[in-house]
Each structure stands twice: as C-alpha cells, then as structure tokens.
Design a protein around this nucleic acid. Structure first.
Length: 882
RNA sequence: GGGCGGUUAGCUCAGUUGGUUAGAGCGUCACAUUGACAUUGUGAAGGUCGAUGGUUCGAGCCCAUUACCGCCCACCA
C-alpha cells in the first residue's frame, strides 16, 4: 500500500507525529529481533539489558540519557544487520520503594506499616509500583526507545523469583552464603540493616570529649556508648604505655560506679590520635568488633533497635541517644571525669542513603555472601572476589572509560562480606524455610508446618542476576540465552559498585561467563551551573516537558552530543532548543530535495559524479560514512553526532545544496545522499528520520541498511562498496583541493563584499588570476553574487585578496577606500611574512630536517612555498596601489 | 588519609597513538527578509590550552612539581 502523503509542511512539528511513528514501530513488531524479515540472515547478535528504573516514581533526565544512548546503540546495530535486542524492565528497588510508600502512607494517614500489617502494606506498595511502572513505560516510549516489550521483565516477578531462589541455593550449597552474627549497619528509623555501599557519609561537627578513665584519658564523640566499656586499648609499640601489660586489670571509677578494666594491646589503636588510648564498644563499632574478635573479648549491647539505651545504662535506660548524651556528660562532669572538651571536632556520621536515619552499628544474625570464601572452580580454589577481579583484569569485560577499572579494583580490594538480608517487607523473601531444627534452602518445601524466613533480600541480589534472569535462566537451555553475554551494559558511573560489580559477581559465579562484554559509563547530567538537579533547587529539567516543547529527537541529541563517557555534562534548555533547530534544518533540507527533484525517491546505485561538486560531496560523504561507522564501533557517539551535524549543515546544505540550485541534473545525487544521510542520523533522531523516510517509499528506515563503509585505494581514490556494483567515487586529492580553492575564492569575495557592506542585490565584477576558475563561473556568480568573472587586466578601483595561490580583485568603482585597502593588505602581508619567517626557521633547523618524518617536512615545505607566493602577490598589490 | 576527574574563546564543551597559524555549538557584532529553512543565510570579532619546570627537531596532548574546583573511597576511637 502506498501512503498518500500530505504536502511537505514548512516546519517540522514533532508533537503531531511522534506518537503515531512509535505506534508504527510497535505495529511492525521489529523491536523483537525474531520478527525482523531477514532474521535468519543476520549473523551477529547484539543485546543490551536496560538498567531497570526503580518503580519509585518517574523518569528523570538521567534515565533519558540512558535511553537516548542505548537506543542509539541498538538502532545502529539493527541497521547494521545484527540481531538486535534491547530488553526492558523495572526494578522493585526494595528499600527505596518501601521507604517512599511508608512516607506517603504516614503523611496521608499517620499510619506505619505495622498498623497496616504485612499483606495490606504489600498490597499498597504493589499498587504504587504498578502506577510507577506504567508511567515509566510510557516515558520510555516517548523517548522513542526501541525496546522489545514482549520481553519486559520486573525484578520482583515470578520468573525472577525463581532465578533468585536458584542462585541463593547454589551459593548456599557452595558455602558462599551463610548466616551469622556479625556487626551490621542498622537503621533505627527504617528498622532494617543496609549494606556498606548504601551508607552515605556526612561530615558533621560535634563536641569531642576527653574522659578520665582510671590512669588514662580517652577520647570519644559518643559518650552514650561508653557504659559497657571495660577494655582499654593501646598500640603495643606505644612507649608511653609500656608500664601497662596486656591483660592487666585496673580498678577505676566510671559513669555508674567502680568497674574493672582490662588492658588490651592491639595495633588498631593509633598512637597519633588523641592520647593513643581508647576504650571499645564492640557491639556498636566495626573496628571495636574486630578487636574484640581478635582477643576473644565480651560484647555487650548498649543501644536497642530503636536507638534507645538499654538497662546497662542504669538511670539513663530507655532514653534516646540525643537526650541521654547531655545527661551523661553532666554526670561525668559532676564526678570530675571530664578532662576537657574539643568543641570543633569534625567527623563523618553514617546515614542510610535511602532516606533513612543515622546508622547504628549492631550485632545481628543476618545472611551474608562470603566474598573471600574459597570454593572449587574447574579444579582450582577461587573466591568471588577473584572472579570479579579476573573478569576485568583479563579484559573479558572492558570498562569505558578505562579509568573506572581502577575504581572497580579498589572497591573489590576493600570489599567485606555482603549483608544480603533486610528486615524490609517489600522484596524477595529469603528463600529459607524452618521447621524446628530442620531447614530447607532455595526450594519451597512440601508439607505443612514450614515457616519462611521473615527477611527479604537486598534489592541488588536480584538485580545482580538481571542480564540472564531476563533471558530464561535458570533454564540454561532457554533459547534467549543466545543473547548472553549481552554486548554492552550502559549505565551511570554512580552505579558501578551497586550493580555493575554485582552483576559480574553473579554471572561469573553462576554461569561461568561475564554478563556483558563492555561497560559504557555515562556521566551525570547537571544543570547549567554544574549543580545536581533536585526538586529543592528547582533546577530540574523534565525530559517529558522537553519532548513536549522541542521533540524527542532534539532532547535525545542534547543528551548525546557534547559529552564524553564518564564525565558529567551540563544541560540547559537552550542546548535542547539548539538541537530542535537542527531537527528542523534536516527537515527543510529534505523538503528542498523533495521540491528540487520532484519527489523523494530511493536511488539504489550510486550516481555518476558529473561535476567537481559531485565528486567532492561523494568523497566527503564516503569519508563521513566510514568515520561515523567507526565512531559507533568505538562508542564515541558524540563524535559521530558532531561529524554528522557538520556534514549535514555545512557541507551538504550550505555548499552542495546551494550549488545544486545552479548546477541542474542532480536529482539522483540529492536523493542518493539524502536517503543515506537519514539512515546515518536515524540512531540519534529516530522520529524525524522515519517521518521523512516515509516519503522515499522504501519501507521503514528503522530496518533500512546501514550505508557500507568505504576504503581508500592506493591512488588516493575513495572507493565505495556502498551497494554499488564496482563503481568508485573518484574524488581525487586534486579534485578536493580544487573544490577547496573554489570555496576559498567564494568566501574571499563574500568577505570583501561584507566589508564594503554590499547588499546581495548589488553584483560585482571580479578578476581572478587562475583561469581554471572560469569553469565554475556559474557557481561563483551565484554564491558570491558576481556579475562578470574574468581573468583579464586588474581594474583600477579594486579590493584584493590572495587565497590558495589565486589573486582575486573585486571591482568596486567609486567605493574603494584606498587607505583602508592599504591597511588591510599590509596587515595581511605582515602576518604572511611572520609565517614565512617561522617556517624558514623551522626548515633551517638541521635537527628538524633530519628527525621529522618526510611527510611532515614535505608538508611544511609546501606551506612555506605557498606563503612566499602569497607574500609576493600581496607586495605587488601594495605596490600597484596609488 | 588514599584515589580519580576537571581547568582550552564570554558560556557549554571537543580535541582520536605529540606534527597546519588550536576547533564546534551557543552567545556577541555587522549585513540580509517573497521561492527549503528567520527554528534562516553571509561575514566578523574572540583563546600565550590553570601555573612552573622538564623530555623532544616539535607539547593542549608525554613526565615532574604546584594551585584551584568537583567526585569517590577510608574502622582515627
């Protein structure tokens, strides 16, 4: 069926067409690779697992960046003839989502999750998650994302739950998952543990108390933890305390009366810090816990799960920390135990980064993944840490930009066992069932009387399985597993530890292969002033808003062009508006070609280049195809976009189309180039290119063929395998140089015209020194507004210039300001002479001549010769001036 | 305390293994408005590439030192 298209509107209006185009793509089914008509012929596989957005709300500009980049990658792969798959999904984001919903419920109904009960609370969270999900899916579509919706997944659905249970079981059986009493990060506010990576440290100023502890002075910022302190620790090599022996008992007066303290010598005590002596609280401090473990010391809980003091605190029992601290200091002061107080002490306090409270370390029975635990793998003993390290060290996984490999290794080096159980309600239940002494792991037990572990798993546990749990795993025979390892993982660098590293852990452990071959890390999007976007600052740029105002293509371009991987980018509405202008430019280029050639149409075979301009543009275009293809292969999307913009706007529109208005018979050339140019643009701006392409009547651009790359032959001729049987583009170096001279001559004339403020209507006569330029009389006449172009005698009243060895005299009878001309030429001459001098010095340098490559020397010599020639001509011009 | 990044035109940024007189977009200035596009065209101005020293025939790029800004990591109680 041939669509009847309306007339070509003067301006591109994205708002009117984007939704329909997206629907057309959906209807085609091509987002699902198996539906591609030539699926079987497509040899290479390309796949991306989309980082699933959290179902905590709506997509922000960072998500939009992710979608723009990934969609460009997938569309490029699809156009390049690959089996291109991009899997969508959402993340239940256990802690973030639960925290958000709890907050909403409390604000609206003043109820906690305990008031509602587990089933009702989960019903509410799921309802919220569903709404967020729908919004997110809609936003992905608005961005033009070519996601395979038939494969959509959710980190908390039944299939993913199965994957989680199988993974858990295998790790448990290998001894990598264990349950133990360890010191963990407890958030009293949300009543759950959080992993080390979910802590956010905030600098804070607090009084630092120096307390008299028997013969010692100890320092603390947390006097409320000191009740149980009965060990006093110092470095074994600290000479000041040689009088005290390890294990020595000391009677001393403390907060609630006399106690017996034991001296412990341990290297964890820093002699440089404070007095070099400290007391320890193993239950509420990770370092202290370590010391206590090493020496087999008692551990006592001082603070309960709600952040209140326990009976050990005596009269302070039941008080919240903040209240108790004041009273304790008062009591210590009255007992004369406060030595002095440093009021300006700065330390870091740990917060739950997901909107929770101040972390209180506690000893708790939790589930852990042992990252240093050895297990057998192919006859060797390895650890999860080693698997993670090897994957990157061996370049099995490549990180772009590579500097993040260092960050990655550093993180692994400092990694401790991963606490995976949470006391949250929203999430995958820890797949362990208990009945009396019995325990079943990883599989739902038969029979009655089994109770499941009430905890849920860290959201990153299921997220770590994402690349393969979305492709049918744990069924290793699942046909979709052909898409694994995925080709590239594209995400923000801020998520390297949380997610990227854990995916590598899970995949190398469970599958024995990496989850992706390349990690492409994009930067954060900031506002014009480099600040993070946030609601409170009111500087948020909402992608949907921008799409509504400037179109999805412009929004996408603004997020792809002008940035580099791993570096933050600043975004402004002006930038997006600028790309809206470009979108319209491309539209109008097409509109012009449509009018000029009586309708856009597919041209299969590369047309014969008739004129110099034809040869030039085909040569240029061939090189653009080659470079853009290469940039895509190297994930240098910004460079690809900039090169395309330059070619499209400057070379094709400003030069070639202007020439096409003069040189007729370019219908094939124009259509041939435009069609392929649209394909090159399609990964970046899918909507407008699809809309224009409809007028070519050649199917959908989404499944068009990427123009073939080109090669340069020995003679410097650029040949194209561009679907053309044996026809080569013959833009020789000489042709290219000639065209450049032509361009320079035109610019020089325009320049002179501008200096004398000539309006376009006013034509000028021009005398040039090179008669071969007369061949291009029509072009020069039109583009530089010239009446007669000759090679005759230089007229009297002229303004002159020298470019590329050509002398140009623009006849300006009655207009020439001789003094001004003289100054202009003198300045030019002076600069040229300086340059000649510089080049001469360089070429007279024996070291340069003997050591620089010949090619460089030849180039420098040619430049010198041209400059000398130019200087001579300028001198003659000056001499002939009256 | 360790590590990483940034510093190039008024602003936002490129600059591919060191090789033209360092580029782009936006902004600025001048001129132009009936024939693809004013969401435009033409032309121009604007930078001693943070600083110092070194390597080299040659440095924005490599090395060392240093300044400022930003980020990440860290068990100084």
């Amino acid at each position: 069926m041939i669509e009847v298209l309306p007339e070509f509107p003067k301006a591109y209006e994205p708002q009117g067409v984007e939704d329909a185009i997206y629907q057309k793509w959906l209807d085609s089914g091509y987002f699902t690779p198996e539906n591609l008509p030539d699926f079987a012929d497509r040899k290479e596989v390309f796949s991306i697992a989309m980082p699933p957005p959290n179902v905590t709300g709506t997509l922000h500009i960072g998500h939009a960046t992710m979608l723009a980049i990934e969609d460009s990658m997938v569309r490029f792969a699809r156009l390049s003839g690959k089996k291109a798959l991009w899997v969508p999904g959402t993340d239940h984001a256990a802690i973030a989502t639960q925290s958000k919903v709890e907050k909403m419920i409390f604000e609206a109904e003043a109820k906690t999750r305990h008031d509602l009960g587990r089933p009702e609370f989960l019903r509410r969270v799921n309802e919220f998650a569903q709404n967020s999900h729908d919004t997110i899916v809609n936003q992905c579509k608005k961005m033009g994302s070519s996601l395979d919706w038939s494969r959509e997944a959710y980190t908390l659905d039944a299939e993913r739950n199965k994957a989680v249970n199988v993974a858990f079981k295998q790790m448990f059986e290998d001894g990598l998952i264990y349950r133990g009493d360890r010191i963990v990060n407890w958030d009293p506010l949300m009543q759950t543990t959080v992993s080390d990576d979910e802590l956010e440290r905030k600098e804070s100023k607090a009084p630092f108390y120096y307390l008299k502890y028997g013969p010692f002075v100890i320092g603390t910022a947390r006097p409320e933890t000191k009740f149980g302190d009965k060990y006093v620790v110092m470095h074994p090599a600290d000479e000041r305390y040689f009088a005290f022996e390890h294990g020595q008992k000391i009677e001393l007066e403390w907060i609630n009366g006399p106690i017996t303290a034991t001296v412990v010598k341990d290297e964890a005590a820093d002699p440089e810090f404070g007095t070099g002596v400290m007391t320890i609280t193993p239950w509420h401090d990770a370092v202290d816990f370590g010391i206590a473990e090493r020496h087999g010391l008692d551990k006592e809980q001082i603070i309960d799960d709600n952040g209140k003091l326990l009976p050990v605190a005596g009269e302070f029992a039941g008080q919240p920390i903040k209240v108790a601290r004041k009273g304790i200091i008062e009591k210590l002061t009255s007992k004369g135990l406060v030595d002095h107080i440093d009021e300006d002490y700065v330390h870091n306090i740990a917060l739950n980064s997901r909107g929770g409270g101040i972390i209180e370390p506690q000893i708790k029975r939790q589930w852990f993944v042992g990252v240093n635990t050895e297990f057998a793998r192919e006859g060797k003993m390895v650890t999860l840490k080693k698997l993670m390290q090897d994957a990157v060290r061996s370049k099995w996984v490549t990180i772009v930009p590579d500097r993040f490999e260092k960050t990655y290794f550093h993180w692994i080096d400092n990694l401790r066992d991963w606490n995976i159980s949470r006391q949250l309600w929203f999430g995958h239940r820890v797949p362990v069932w208990y009945k009396g002494e019995e325990q079943i792991v990883g599989e739902v037990p038969d029979g009655d009387g089994w109770e499941q572990d009430s905890d849920t798993l860290d959201t990153w546990f299921s997220a770590g399985l994402w690349t393969f749990s979305t492709l049918g795993w744990p069924n290793k025979e699942a046909p979709d597993m052909m898409y694994h390892p995925t080709t590239v993982l594209e995400t923000g660098y801020d998520i390297l530890f949380f997610w990227v590293a854990r995916m590598i852990l899970m995949s190398t452990y469970l599958l024995g292969e990496v989850p992706f071959k390349t990690v492409y890390l994009h930067g954060l999007v900031r506002d014009e002033q480099g600040r993070k976007m946030s609601k409170s600052l009111g500087n948020i740029i909402d992608p949907l808003d921008m799409i509504g105002r400037y179109g999805a293509d412009a929004t996408r371009l603004s997020l792809i062009i002008g940035g580099t991987p791993g570096n933050d980018t600043r975004l402004s509405e002006e930038k997006i508006a600028g790309f809206r202008n470009f979108t319209n430019k491309l539209w109008n280029i097409s509109r012009f070609v449509d009018m000029q050639t009586a309708g856009l149409r597919h041209v299969e075979v590369m047309p014969v280049a008739v004129t110099l301009a034809d040869k030039w543009i085909l040569g240029k275009f061939a090189s653009v195809i080659e470079k853009v293809t290469q940039y895509h292969a190297n994930y240098q999307l910004s460079l690809a976009g900039e090169l395309l913009r330059e070619f499209t706007w400057t070379d094709f529109a400003d030069w070639y189309l202007e020439i096409a208005k003069v040189e007729k018979g370019k219908d094939e050339m124009l259509n041939y180039i435009l069609e392929r140019l649209l394909i090159l643009w399609h990964p970046f701006m899918p909507f407008v290119t699809e809309e224009i392409y409809a007028r070519f009547n050649n199917g959908m651009i989404m499944v068009a063929k990427w123009p073939m790359s080109v090669a340069t032959d020995m003679a410097g001729h650029i040949t194209s395998a561009n679907g053309v049987a044996g026809r080569a583009v013959t833009a020789s170096t000489k042709d290219e140089e000639m065209f450049e001279v032509l361009q320079n001559v035109i610019v020089a004339i325009r320049n002179i015209r501008a200096e004398y403020n000539l309006v376009p209507k006013q034509l000028v006569d021009v005398v040039v020194s090179d008669k071969s330029l007369l061949l291009y009389n029509d072009i020069i006449a039109a583009l530089a507004r010239v009446r007669y172009l000759t090679t005759g005698e230089k007229p009297e009243q002229v303004a002159s210039a020298v470019v590329g060895g050509v002398e140009i005299h623009v006849s300006l009878e009655g207009l020439v300001d001789t003094a001004k001309e003289k100054t202009r030429i003198e300045t030019e001459l002076e600069n040229t002479k300086k340059y000649v001098e510089m080049q001469t010095t360089k070429l007279d340098n024996a070291d340069f001549v003997s050591r620089a490559p010949e090619k460089v020397i030849a180039g420098e010599k040619a430049k010198l010769a041209e400059a000398i020639d130019k200087a001579q001509k300028l001198e003659q011009q000056l001499a002939s001036m009256k």
